[in-house]
Amino acid sequence: MGKFLKNFGMGLVYVFLLPILLLVLALAGIYLLGNWLYQGGVFLVRFFRGYPGFEELEEDKRVREILEARREANRPKKTAGGIQGEKPAPAPQAQNVYVQQNFYQMPPGYMPPPGYTPIGKPQINPQNPLPMPEIPHVPFQEQPTPIPQQDVQTASGKEGAEPGDGSAEIGEPTDEIEVDEDE
């Protein structure tokens, strides 16, 4: 009932307000029609001169600059260590592999029946028992082992060892080894 009376009262008010509202609407419409034609003319002239239809306002320009600066500041920068602000890739985690082995106590002398295959164990092909890729054969190449200089000096500086007396342990002829006496 209250709502009904309120609507009724508002209706009484709008009986007087509606003509005024319509008058305001009509006057604004006439003004805006002229405004629209003016703006349309300006828009077309600017457009055909190659500019944007409406000139960017100074306030809009400043807002755009502020927003661009903020966006630039928030953008992650590329550095030598990666992208700044980006989370590093997680380190590889150690994986635990559980291998279950079951052992059963059997009586002494027990032999499994012929053809018995433990459950879970893969069948082995007797023709190709290990189906693995072939490893290419690389022939062994013997490389000369360099003689350490220290060993040579030790051999020549041995007490009582004369060159050519056959006491040197190294089988090379000692005459060919040059030893600096000054040292």
């Binding site: 009904f4 609507n7 709008y14 509606l18």
Partner: peptide, 15 residues
């Protein structure tokens, strides 16, 4: 008249 006023009230509220 009541109907007219009611309709006008609703119209005004909608506006």
């Amino acid at each position: 008249l009541v109907v007219i006023f009611l309709l006008l009230g609703l119209l005004g509220m909608a506006i």
